[in-house]
Simulated assay, not measured.
Amino acid sequence: MAIEEHININIVKNIDMRYGENPHQMAAFFISSDAGVSGLGHLYTEGKLHGKELSYNNIADISAAIRMLTDLDDNSCIVIKHSNPCGAASRDTCYESFKAAYEGDSMSIFGGIVGFKGVVDEKTAEFLHGIFLEIIIAESFTKEAIEILTKKKNLRLIEYKKWKNEIFKEDQIEIKKVIGGYLLQNRDTINPKTESFNLVTERKATEQELDDLVFAQIMVKHVKSNAIVIVKNKMLLGVGAGQMNRVTAANIAMNWAGEKVKNAVLGSDAFFPMDDTVRTVATKGIVAIVQPGGSVKDEDSIKACNELGLSMYFTGVRHFYH
Results as ranks from 00 to 15, higher is better:
residue 145 A to Y: 03
residue 37 V to Y: 14
residue 54 L to Y: 02
residue 39 G to F: 14
residue 48 K to S: 15
residue 82 H to I: 01
residue 80 I to E: 14
residue 147 E to R: 07
residue 118 G to C: 08
residue 121 D to T: 05
residue 70 T to H: 09
residue 82 H to P: 02
residue 59 I to H: 00
residue 61 D to P: 01
residue 24 H to E: 11
residue 44 Y to D: 05
residue 132 F to G: 15
residue 27 A to S: 12
residue 60 A to S: 14
residue 55 S to M: 06
residue 144 E to F: 07
residue 115 G to P: 03
residue 129 H to N: 09
residue 83 S to Q: 10
residue 61 D to V: 11
residue 75 N to H: 10
residue 81 K to T: 06
residue 106 S to N: 12
residue 146 I to S: 03
residue 41 G to Q: 03
residue 89 A to H: 00
residue 144 E to D: 10
residue 41 G to D: 02
residue 75 N to T: 12
residue 139 E to L: 01
residue 30 F to E: 10
residue 135 I to V: 10
residue 84 N to Y: 06
residue 102 Y to W: 13
residue 73 D to T: 06
residue 71 D to N: 13
residue 45 T to E: 11
residue 105 D to W: 05
residue 33 S to Y: 08
residue 119 V to G: 02
residue 55 S to Y: 03
residue 107 M to Q: 10
residue 34 D to Y: 07
residue 50 H to M: 06
residue 83 S to W: 00
residue 92 D to V: 10
residue 36 G to Y: 02
residue 99 K to C: 02
residue 55 S to N: 03
residue 76 S to Y: 03
residue 60 A to N: 15
residue 29 F to M: 11
residue 38 S to G: 08
residue 85 P to F: 01
residue 31 I to L: 09
residue 62 I to Q: 00
residue 142 T to M: 04
residue 79 V to H: 01
residue 62 I to E: 02
residue 39 G to D: 09
residue 34 D to A: 03
residue 77 C to K: 00
residue 25 Q to G: 11
residue 90 S to R: 00
residue 93 T to F: 01
residue 145 A to M: 09
residue 58 N to K: 08
residue 83 S to T: 15
residue 91 R to K: 13
residue 24 H to V: 13
residue 78 I to Q: 05
residue 128 L to R: 02
residue 27 A to L: 07
residue 38 S to W: 13
residue 51 G to V: 15
residue 146 I to M: 12
residue 141 F to G: 02
residue 49 L to S: 13
residue 92 D to E: 15
residue 74 D to P: 01
residue 56 Y to E: 09
residue 134 E to F: 07
residue 121 D to A: 12
residue 61 D to C: 14
residue 128 L to Q: 05
residue 106 S to F: 09
residue 65 A to W: 00
residue 122 E to Q: 12
residue 79 V to C: 05
residue 143 K to W: 10
residue 85 P to H: 10
residue 91 R to T: 08
residue 128 L to V: 08
residue 126 E to K: 11
residue 146 I to W: 01
residue 42 H to M: 15
residue 52 K to F: 13
residue 71 D to P: 08
residue 67 R to I: 01
residue 124 T to M: 09
